[in-house]
């Protein structure tokens, strides 16, 4: 199954990922991304991949497990 990865140091709290995939990404009180799940299905991959690509600092990726 595809796996979600995040670069927590790079995250700047822009929050674009939450718009496209609020089921996969959230943000904590310090403004850093939180992964709401580790693995995703192939069906939801396109939508979550597009949300990951909306990160202005490329902190998010979807990788093949």
């Amino acid at each position: 199954m595809p796996v979600l990865k995040a670069d927590f140091e790079a995250c700047q709290g822009y929050g674009n990922c939450l718009t496209g995939a609020p089921d996969a990404y959230d943000i904590d009180d310090d403004g850093v991304v939180v992964l709401l799940k580790q693995e995703i299905t192939d069906e939801e991959r396109p939508r979550i991949e597009e949300a990951a690509r909306s990160c202005p600092v490329s902190a998010l990726t979807v990788e093949d497990s």
């Binding site: 709290g13 929050g15 939450l18 718009t19």
Partner: peptide, 14 residues
């Protein structure tokens, strides 16, 4: 300097 408030407001505006 308050991303949490921004994402909350973004949801509320939407």
């Amino acid at each position: 300097n308050w991303p949490k408030a921004l994402v909350t407001c973004r949801r509320l505006v939407t």
